[in-house]
Amino acid sequence: MNKIALPNGKFVVKPFNKMWIVLPILVGLVVLFWQFIRMDPAFQPENIKLDQLKIILVKLFTPKGNRTWEDYFKFMLKLENPLIATLKMCFAGTIIGSLLAIPFAILSSKNIVKYPPIYWGFRTLLNLFRTIPMVVLAIIAVLFIGTGLLAGIIAITLFTFGVMSKMLYEVIETVDMNPYEALESTGANRVTAFRFAVVPQIMPIFISYLLYVFEINIRASAILAYVGAEGLGVAIKDNTLYNYDRVGATIMVLLVLVLIIQTFSGWVRRRLQ
């Protein structure tokens, strides 16, 4: 079957194509996983219509019933406090989490800590910690200190810590260690050598990561409202059943916020290079 004979009697053997293994597995997985989507009691394929989505979009982004466009935009102005809450949570969480990440990142770097059990230990811990989603962290924070802004700050702090520590140790491992050697040769201790030989190299990258994580946090923090933190998500959650227009207005505000922060951080990052 895999032999292809040429008219002159010679033949070539076609090698086995791995696609014949990969493709059935892929199809099998699709079929199997689809069962688990279909088994969802709330899922009725026959009820899904695309125009439903259109109706929703209209409902979200136009004023409801007897409300006017003025009401629609006035509601946006009322979002001042949730907006500030979102910014507070993300700002404090990003800064504190990133600062907390620094010592752990150092302890996980091969080139600074030359003792494998230490850096492997810290890496494993960080990797496990990073798998816990922000929402779960928030739930745990709520269990300890109750609902409110503080729980949000703590959740974002811990999430930032997990993300940042990994990105940081990867950066630390790529720095040029020659200046570090030079500093050690002048008699500087390891802390000072790190401060003057490694910190200047990683500082611009650290700041650009800081902005990047801040962006992620702003986008992701809306979900925290569903487990008891504050921010713009609350306005979405509270109006999600009846006031679609308010949900839409909040979404617009969040989008504008994301856009502004994206633009700002892009500008800063370009200047850092």
């Binding site: 969802d40 986008r219 992701a220 989008l255 994301v258």
Partner: peptide, 24 residues
């Protein structure tokens, strides 16, 4: 890329109901 995933999910959940298909 910049459009927050959660907002997309909120919109799609509204459109297709609270089920795994909306998540997909």
């Amino acid at each position: 890329r910049v459009f927050p995933e959660i907002i997309l999910a909120i919109i799609l959940v509204k459109g297709f109901g609270m089920n795994a298909f909306a998540g997909l």
